[in-house]
Amino acid sequence: MTTQPDALVSTAPTALAGVAFTKGHGTGNDFVLVTDRTGSLEIAADQVSAICDRHRGIGADGLIRAVPSRHLPEGRALLRSDPSAEWFMDYRNADGSVSEMCGNGVRVFVHLLVSTGLLALADGATASIATRGGIKVVERSADGYSVDMGPWEFVYPDVAAARATDSLVEASGLEVPRPALSISMGNPHTVVALAEPAELEATRLFDAPVVQPAPVDGTNVEFVVPRDPLVHDGVGQVTMRVYERGVGETLSCGTGACAAAAATRFWAGAGAPLAWRIEVPGGVVGVRFHAGPDGREHVSLSGPAVLVATGTLL
């Protein structure tokens, strides 16, 4: 962990004056994190967007509040199923909207808890973390963290089974709408397969892609290029860019990487590998499919978590 000296940063309405923060990232997907041990900190959407503003604020893809689960109705409900899920990851997108989960964010969240002594987690040990996407089990390793992201599923299973795609996506830089497949990782994703790296590079993600049919709550959109060969040493390989709802293009998206692997594996058919290497602009994350304790197929996401600075809001 690299920690810079505390600094006072004037970024948010005065209601948050004096609140300490930490800045961190997972493969370039960056977050402002605050710890709220008493559950008394209320952060409005406009405060989140002010803090996450990259020109007038600290700058981040989202804000994460670390709060004991017992202080939130959603957290108390999850504690009934897993009393060890003591900490709740309250995640907001950069525009202030609430999100169910963030795969890169939960790794950084756990690293914050471990680094500040709020959670004891040795290499190889696991911890249960409460999120709006359910309880996520996080394992610490020598080079980062692995998260059981839970089961994946098709958003439109009947359509996917019949056609292998279920929607069309328009994006600047692509001449025609492209077929896509919608995957839920607890939050919605729409995965578009492109033919070659040049198409991926030409896709412009300054504006939100247009998805038809449009999901009610919006969707993250992943543009993926399978590598050639697709499988190397038993590991599937995909390069990806992502547009996150409420944020814009980000350097990485954990749940998006899982969705991209799930869609590509489905398209590859029988014999597709369980392990995948997903290259994103911010680095590389690992995805693995495995049997979950509920009898469903789960997805695990692995990668680094880095804390880079601490400070205090004015």
Rank of each mutant, 00 (worst) to 15 (best):
L112Y: 07
V306Y: 08
T264D: 02
Q4V: 00
V9L: 11
S141Y: 06
T190D: 12
T126N: 11
G295M: 10
D233H: 13
V155W: 01
A66Y: 02
E100M: 09
V284C: 10
V169C: 01
E100Q: 15
P13G: 08
S184R: 14
G303W: 08
G105H: 07
R65I: 15
P226E: 05
A171V: 11
G234F: 04
G117Y: 04
A164I: 00
T255N: 11
F88H: 10
A12P: 06
H71F: 08
A77T: 02
H189M: 08
S167C: 15
P226R: 10
L307D: 04
V138Y: 04
I43C: 07
D82P: 02
D294W: 09
V106M: 07
D46I: 06
L194N: 08
V98S: 03
R80F: 00
A17H: 15
A20Q: 11
V221E: 04
Y243S: 01
G295S: 06
D233P: 03
P177S: 06
A122E: 14
R245P: 03
R241T: 09
N29E: 05
A20P: 09
A120L: 12
V155E: 10
G173W: 04
S184N: 12
T250Y: 00
A195F: 10
G26H: 05
R163Q: 11
P226V: 02
S115Q: 13
L301A: 03
G303M: 12
E199I: 01
R288S: 14
L181C: 08
R80V: 06
A160R: 06
V114S: 01
T190R: 14
D207R: 14
A130T: 11
H55K: 07
V48W: 03
M1G: 05
P177E: 08
R107T: 05
G39W: 12
E139G: 09
P209H: 06
S40F: 00
E170L: 10
R288M: 13
